[in-house]
Write a protein that binds this DNA or RNA. Structure first.
Lengths: 375, 375
DNA sequence: CCCAAACCTGAAACCGTTTTCAGATATTTT
DNA sequence: AAAATATCTGAAAACGGTTTCAGGTTTGGG
């Protein structure tokens, strides 16, 4: 066969360009063709310092510094000369030197748990967004829900003299967090803690669980199974508490025999769902303590030929991005992760003396899709 | 109603602890109870420098430095004194000062595109993993597929004098990348580029597309629709080229009327799938250029009552974590993202003069799940 | 017992900035 | 025109480390 891969690619490209129905406008990239590289570009570029710029522009380093930072007026001719030199030499201030002198690093540490977690990622995204244009940059490390690892990673951040730290959940103890907050301001999620240099954001998960259960109960469901989160996880406990409260308010008795523990991950969801189905008790709906558990449960039901929502209704919790594209799209309780990220940033910024506007705490809300039907 | 929320939570906790079937073992957390905070802990902690330690231990700063870095022998009594002082005062070397002197920051920049992208996240995870224990820490910024933003974020990294940079895809031109590589070693994905200070990793997407199409063709499918990626995206073009090649080898004619363009996101998948169904042509399978597109397509089929795989088979590409939990679990081509991250780290480390072992380039492989059936 | 070699240790210089302080000009004011 | 003020600029001192260099102790050999 005389097939040449390069020809194939060219052909494919033409085909794509010609016969495709554009479903959406894209910015056209200009650099899809490989370019020949001028060999002259290779090799190391000398790092240029303020001293070099000063020499080049015929002024003192102080003057250069003043121009770079705008800290004082300087004569126009020198300003021009310096700006030209900076542009010509591609000078970039060494942030380490600056940090050393100023005692501030313009970076904010962020301890997350897992870079792959869709909900933590969304928080980070909101955080990044809010930080944009403030001059601060985030530095992200992951602790993987492991106290020892978390401490080590925070150490990494503190050695870099971060100006502030945000802690997304994790296994650090309150005391450890307090100790950390003695060195720089801290904002943490998922706990309640008082301190002069620390702020916490605690969403009302009890209310969230309550909302979810009420939705199911109001649609006539009376035997609702629950796939919980880890029993040591406060949010899991709170969501379950709300679930319990809704039952009480509706006057329906809750059967503890149909609540099973998951682990907030898909796999825990399948395990729990299997046990639930195997235990022989009947139920018309299941409330999973988070979306990932719900996804696991959904898969088990698919495997066993149980239709959602015709046979049993399914609710999740979190509203991670994937839920909108499940089959069927999942009804869930939305945690405003993006806004949480925003809030965390604002909160920290205000502790750093930046004037940020109102900071509002977001609340949870029901998002109705298609995985729940009237009983 | 005399319902007290606190009581509810306690109750819920007890219930959870008591009646749950443990589906998996968890490390027990010891700090679920809120602890009263000793007020004495609050307030700022002075930052302690090498000078402070030296004074405290009755030696010179040089000696402290030598002990901290292990760069020379010092007498045991002084060593002990210094170590005690360090522990007592909780001394942590200021990395900015060290970087300033040493010209190395022990941090590696990583330009990703979107912290929420499941496949990029997996690469980062692999990268983090490989960096563990090397002394280097990653600093992650996002460019959001926007050249201007990418440049700005890279500037942020370079001001911090990163020791190396890894670029995950994006819109930077080859020339820009080359220019960047003049200041520190660079490793980039998704392009082929030569340079003394730059290395690139290019997976064979043509082969990947070929594998996917062959799977479908070998199962008897003859009219296979395709939802492509953006037409300016090299990987998308290559996957399509492989798709075309497989058709040629099987001697089946490919109908360009059933290939539609997506955008590598779920939404593009739904748009493309709708057009595909509306165009009236028949087909027995669809190959989506990535899993996210496949998810969008899957949703549309669900909406229109088309069963997968009974009515039409569906293949994705990437094997992002969520695919295993779709209904049905998605047959796809696995890109070894985690291993790619590993490889990137090793590659960069070796450019930094670290001795890393063999670095192998991972290859793609078919992962068969349940969304494809014999035609 | 003396001298050389080996070993420890501290003073000082330096990394690239910012900022204070004081000197030099330029601009008013009388 | 002299004095007083306002404005601009550069020298030098930090910031917190590492490292060179040289001085001071031991140790060991002859």
């Amino acid at each position: 066969m005389h097939y040449d891969s390069q020809d194939g690619k060219r052909l494919a490209k033409t085909l794509l360009k010609k016969c495709l129905t554009e479903t959406r406008g894209f910015p056209l990239a200009t650099n899809t063709e490989p370019t020949p590289l001028p060999a002259s570009l290779l090799g190391d570029m000398p790092i240029v310092t303020v001293t070099d710029v000063a020499r080049e522009a015929g002024v003192s380093v102080s003057t250069v510094s003043r121009i770079v930072n705008g800290t004082a007026r300087v004569a126009d001719d020198k300003r021009l000369a310096v700006e030209a030199a900076i542009a010509r030499m591609d000078y970039r201030p060494n942030l380490h030197a600056r940090s050393l002198k100023m005692g501030t690093s313009m970076t904010i540490g962020m301890l997350t748990q897992d870079i792959e977690s869709p909900f933590l990622a969304r928080v980070i995204r909101g955080f990044e967004e809010a930080l944009k244009g403030t001059g601060y940059a985030p530095m992200i490390v992951s602790g993987h829900w492991n106290q020892k690892e978390e401490i080590e990673r925070v150490g990494l951040l503190m050695a870099r003299r971060i100006d502030g730290l945000v802690v997304l959940y994790g296994e650090l103890s309150d005391e450890q967090l307090l100790e950390i907050s003695r060195r720089q301001p801290v904002v943490a999620t998922g706990r309640r803690l008082e301190g002069s240099n620390i702020r916490t954001l605690q969403l009302d998960h009890e209310q969230g669980g309550y909302i979810a259960a009420c939705h199911l109960l109001s649609l006539g469901h009376r035997r609702i199974a629950h796939i919980s989160g880890p029993s040591f996880h406060n949010d899991a406990i709170d969501r379950y508490a709300g679930f319990v409260r809704a039952h009480e308010e509706y006057g329906v008795e809750l059967d503890p025999g149909i609540v099973f523990q998951g682990d907030f991950l898909e796999h825990g969801g399948v395990l729990a769902m299997n046990r639930l189905l195997d235990c022989g008790k009947n139920f018309t709906a299941v409330f999973a303590a988070n979306d990932q558990s719900a996804m696991g449960a959904r898969l088990v039901m698919h495997r066993r030929g149980i239709r959602v929502p015709e046979d049993v209704s399914l609710m999740g919790f979190d509203d991670i991005p994937a839920t909108a594209y499940l089959t069927p799209p999942l009804t869930t309780v939305r945690q405003p992760f993006f806004e949480i990220g925003h809030y965390l940033a604002q909160s920290l910024l205000s502790m750093l003396g930046r004037d940020v506007g109102e900071v509002t705490v977001p609340s949870m809300e029901l998002v109705i899709r298609e995985s729940v039907k009237r009983c």
